[in-house]
């Protein structure tokens, strides 16, 4: 357990009759970026809220820094920086004044903590602009500045690039990476954008309808799911029947009227071609293809995919 900065055990959240998080076990390793990927409403934010004690846990346990958070909040939370959804601050105060409040609440003693945090996210120090006049992107940046203000060991970032322009997204991505690589911080980040997670995360958890479908390192995932056989035939139903009866194949999908995708690349294609031709199914083409991560996610989430 000590290897994991965050570990959840059978974490479940039920609202009324709806189970929004169902027995989720996630394992966030020290010094790594863990990407929680799922469509909107998949349960990512609820998991983060449960870790941060912002919503009661229906059942299951959360361990942070090896300790069960229940009853340990005062010891654990000061070591965490977090953004949940779009961060809100006092609208009648400037960004610097808002951070001054949070620095005082946390007892942050570093003299330049506010200035440094604002510089990192690219916001001006001692600016006169009130928070109520901030754009969504500026609010998000201020939220990140607040999360890193007290130099926490663990960052929990719920869709931190929401509302940022493309340059801002790239800047925040680089900044998050540098926090992990240079300062060894552990980061749990959620997103519904696959490309964002694939560019950032070292480990990934895929969540759909409250269920953690897969958890592995990004490296493993890329290795494991990169290839498939694209088979074009004259009669797809007949070809499917042959593949299932003769080769006991189940891991394939019908793409269109002439195309099949076979995900088991260890299949002997010479024998498959021969069997199809013998049984009057013309093979138009047969080729080995590399799958994209997006296609893979589409497959495991039941075809709905992730943006």
């Amino acid at each position: 357990m000590d290897d994991f900065v965050i570990e959840t055990k059978q974490l479940t959240k039920v609202y009324g009759e709806q189970t929004v998080v169902n027995s989720v076990d996630i394992h966030v390793k020290k010094g790594r970026i863990y990407g929680l990927l799922g469509r909107n409403g998949a349960g990512k934010t609820t998991i983060m809220k449960m870790i941060l004690g912002l919503t009661p846990i229906t059942s299951g346990e959360v361990f942070v820094f090896g300790k069960n958070i229940k009853g340990q909040e005062k010891r654990i939370y000061p070591r965490i920086g977090a953004i949940i959804e779009t961060p809100e601050f006092y609208p009648n105060l400037t960004g610097t004044e808002n951070l001054e409040i949070f620095a005082k609440l946390r007892g942050t003693s570093a003299p330049n903590a506010i200035k440094n945090a604002l510089e990192i996210v690219g916001l001006p120090y001692k600016d006169k602009k009130l928070f109520s006049k901030y754009s969504l992107g500026m609010k998000q940046r201020l939220g990140i500045a607040n999360a890193i203000l007290h130099d926490p060991e663990l960052l929990i970032l719920d869709e931190p690039t929401n509302g940022l322009d493309p340059i801002g997204i790239a800047e925040v991505r680089e900044f998050i990476k540098s926090l992990s690589i240079e300062q060894g911080k552990t980061i749990l980040i959620s997103s519904h954008i696959l490309s964002e997670i694939s560019l950032l995360a070292d480990d990934i958890g895929i969540i759909d309808h409250g269920v953690l479908l897969e958890e592995s390192s990004m490296e493993e995932l890329k290795k494991k799911n990169g290839k498939y056989i694209l088979l074009q035939v004259s009669d797809v139903p007949k070809a499917s029947l042959i593949l299932e009866r003769q080769f006991h194949l189940k891991d394939y999908s019908v793409h269109d009227e002439q195309t099949l995708r076979i995900y088991d690349t260890s299949l002997n294609m010479a024998e498959v071609n021969k069997a199809l031709v013998v049984q009057d199914v013309a093979v138009i083409s047969s080729q080995l293809c590399n799958n994209t991560l997006e296609e893979y996610f589409k497959k495991i989430t039941g075809g709905e995919g992730i943006a």
Binding site: L52, G53, L54, I80, I84, E85, F89, L105
Partner: peptide, 17 residues
């Protein structure tokens, strides 16, 4: 009102206050 209205309380609970 403002802290309630804009869901700012969760920012305070995370501190934790």
């Amino acid at each position: 009102h403002e802290e309630n209205q804009h869901d700012m309380l969760r920012q305070l609970w995370i501190v934790p206050v």
